[in-house]
């Protein structure tokens, strides 16, 4: 049963990195398509659209960060995995869920918002600050989820 607890904790770490990573890949992809559409017509807007394309990439980093914390806590990174009970394993798994799910969904939503913002830049480049603000608002919820995941992981014993 000790191995099952460890496996559950590792599953949590994997899901945090995996789901938030998928979300970011999709979000950055959506924004990238929009950015390519604008750049194909007006390459001078590259720097402005690049910022918007990068925004949905942060969720993947949050997932990775959470995964590293978990793997470090359970000794996998140090090469000495702890003997965890099933209950402890489940707690690590649960702790990873906020960033796994919120990371996945918020990155996709942020990608769509960023793509819409790129549309603003295409027509009114002077309004790029507002376009970035709209996309950055989505980030708030990914940060909240990251906080909960990290706070839970570091406080688990």
């Amino acid at each position: 049963m000790a191995n099952l607890g460890l496996a559950l904790a590792i599953l949590g770490a994997v899901l945090a990195a995996f789901m938030a990573g998928i979300g970011s890949a999709k979000g950055v992809g959506i924004a990238g398509e929009a950015a390519a559409g604008v750049i194909s017509e007006d390459p001078s807007k590259f720097s402005k659209v690049l910022i918007l394309q990068l925004l949905p990439g942060t969720q993947g980093l949050y997932g990775l960060l959470t995964a590293v914390f978990v793997l470090s806590q359970i000794g996998v990174l140090g090469g000495k995995p702890l003997n965890l009970t099933v209950w402890q394993g489940l707690m690590y798994l649960a702790a990873c869920m906020p960033i796994a799910f919120v990371g996945l969904l918020s990155a996709i939503s942020q990608g769509k918002t960023a793509a819409a913002g790129i549309g603003i830049i295409a027509k009114k480049p002077e309004q790029s600050g507002k376009a970035i603000t709209f996309a950055a608002m989505v980030e708030t919820y990914a940060i909240l989820a990251l906080l909960i995941s990290i706070l839970t992981v570091v406080n688990l014993k």
Binding site: G37, A115, A122
Partner: peptide, 9 residues
């Protein structure tokens, strides 16, 4: 997405 952005441009 690409087509709409290009159209906007």
């Amino acid at each position: 997405t690409f087509a709409v952005a290009k159209t906007r441009a």
